[in-house]
Write a protein that binds this DNA or RNA. Sequence first.
DNA 1: ACTGTTGTACGAATGTCTTCGTAAACAAAT
DNA 2: ATTTGTTTACGAAGACATTCGTACAACAGT
Lengths: 129, 129
Amino acid sequence: MKQIRPTESELEILGILWERGPSTVREIHDILSQTKDAGYTTTLKLMQIMHEKELVARDTSSKTHVYTAAISQQKTQQQLLDKMIDTVFGGSASQLVMQALGHHQSSEEELQKIRQYLTAIEKQQKDNR
Amino acid sequence: MKQIRPTESELEILGILWERGPSTVREIHDILSQTKDAGYTTTLKLMQIMHEKELVARDTSSKTHVYTAAISQQKTQQQLLDKMIDTVFGGSASQLVMQALGHHQSSEEELQKIRQYLTAIEKQQKDNR
DNA sequence: ACTGTTGTACGAATGTCTTCGTAAACAAAT
DNA sequence: ATTTGTTTACGAAGACATTCGTACAACAGT
């Protein structure tokens, strides 16, 4: 399996790309600079490097290049989660789940969805027995 | 709030310390070398640096020093989770929860615990209304 | 055509992590 | 006492990440 290892800054940018879809450096930078403080060329350079690493694809047909994420949010999430469960939560996924539910308050809807998910998983386990 | 930022390697060591309790460099190294491949002095150096950063405390009363984790597993978990939810999961904790439950198969017991947890949270929300 | 603005490319400085070689302290065994 | 093995301390090299200055190209408005 191909190992994906985006750095901290790269993840921030990917996060924005996943949320917004195709974006220019300027757009990314404007969002980034709301929470951190870095020059425009810094963001540009980062995205150029991400392009080299093929974390993003870019359309250079117009003067202002347009970037899109080249790795899926799902796969990246799974990979990072797995590593985190392993090193930080001693291998217990449910430990992580409870910790996550504990502090980040979720809406009633979301909790309901999770509950349904749980039921589905339990049913599946029963069927496999 | 004090920001904790252990690196990848530091997290591996912390993970072992959390699981085993107080340990010597030798003990840590033996465990580490099962999964990765690094010299003894590398592990030693890492732990010395972690000591400088006050990620671990050490008892130097005997020749062979004994290290213990100086930051709690709970707090560290929470901090890393929060950041991850933020950057990788677009702020949705339940998104993370479902992803985690989906791939890491948990035991029936664990699922049951999570369900209880859910119920408790929902009840709490109701009471706060 | 000129000027100002916005963009990309590139290289270099700086910072941080990781790795390991070497030296010195110490203890146990011979 | 000398050797052998285990340990800590330290420094430095190599890799990687982050930051930004500078140069140059493209374009818009005058």
